[in-house]
Design a protein around this nucleic acid. Structure first.
Lengths: 206, 206
DNA sequence: AAAAACATTCCAACCGGTCGGTATTTTATT
DNA sequence: AATAAAATACCGACCGGTTGGAATGTTTTT
């Protein structure tokens, strides 16, 4: 194994160990020594790869953002109606719920630091903005193509993102409290078809 | 001033100082000494009123929950249709946004600790459950009275709570990013009336 | 040999919490 | 009413333990 490879392995081990520790105990409660122990490397190796504990945290955030980008990139479906696209986006949430299983508390760590660190804030808000923009586009197209009723795409997008974020947060707090994937599906369904009884609502039996 | 009164003043000063410090710097980063300094009292006074830093945190949580209860209590409107009741609940969010102005990061602290402390978890989840139950009841009644289409009240309630939670979180991260109160209103509107274009949707011009 | 990767050791700073002591108010007793 | 006794509120120096990170040494790669 070359030194570069070895170095990368050590680095990933540190990142993985930190992810686990931060998720389980939080950022402050986790010591550098503990991360090193869990990763099976020394403190020297730690500070060889990361300038500080905070730097490791940022690296972890970057890693998450990259993964998010990867997921969002696999969501290219130009020839679909807006409702279909929106339904498809719900499936993306499933990815979040599954991949981040047990590590969802890490989101809270990110968000918490974001409230205090300008740099982390920018990075953390980026996906929010991206998804908001993506949804706005879908909704706008849906209105144009007539599959959605006229409305403010901006507000709709914000509502959808909020619901998703709220579910992620609650699933982080209470993973066993409910089937969040199903709730997401149902929630989107409601957003699409509405709750209020209309005169013609019963004509459509989906 | 009696000694009791003085005591209560000191206690509130400590609570207020802690609220500010925790909101601005987070739980761990805030030292007991700092809280005392900001409150203008000594460390001895602190530990006279609170058994530990954690206990002060819990007291802060209780204070918030009481305020929430107070707001929810002012929401008794038995003779209203379900849609009206749901719309009214949105107004409650406005209270949260306003009262917690600048202190919303505190929510993140609560939620973060909740993921690790059983007691705090119970207390934090309680309002979620209560609002979920409240909403479930409203929706169920709405279906019974025919103002809402048949659906799973449980899922609807979860969707609404999730949207609210997501908005609170986002407003904590980005208070100036949007008019969250308006977004909440719009989101609820969408949940009620749906996004998908229906044949008879244009007959109702609300 | 030079440099990069990793290990070991150590420490100054800090933090939550304790404790002995003081000041003030309330209660009990005469 | 006067006084003693008890309780309450508060103070701030101090302690044991922990931590992030620097300093320095050792091994491995180039």
């Amino acid at each position: 194994m070359t030194s570069q490879q070895r170095s990368e392995v050590t680095r990933s081990r540190l990142l993985a160990a930190a992810l686990t520790c931060f998720s389980e105990q939080g950022y402050d409660a986790t010591g550098v020594a503990q991360i090193c122990q869990q990763a099976g490397v020394s403190k020297g190796a730690f500070y060889h790869h990361f300038a500080s504990k905070q730097a490791l945290f940022v690296a972890l955030l970057d890693q998450w953002l990259e993964a998010l980008d990867g997921q969002a990139a696999g969501l290219r479906m130009p020839a679909a109606t807006a409702p279909q696209s929106l339904q498809a986006m719900v499936a993306l949430l499933q990815q979040v719920f599954r991949d981040a299983s047990g590590r969802l508390p890490m989101f809270l760590e990110f968000w918490r630091q974001a409230a205090r660190d300008e740099l982390i804030w920018q990075a953390t808000m980026a996906p929010f903005r991206r998804y908001h923009a993506l949804l706005t586009g879908i909704v706008r197209a849906g209105i144009a193509e007539g599959s959605l009723r006229p409305c403010d795409p901006d507000s709709v997008a914000r509502a959808i993102v909020s619901m998703a974020v709220g579910m992620v947060l609650q699933s982080a707090l209470d993973p066993a409290g409910s089937d969040w994937q199903q709730s997401a599906q149902a929630g989107m369904d409601m957003l699409l078809h509405g709750l209020v009884e209309t005169q013609a609502a019963d004509t459509e039996a989906a």
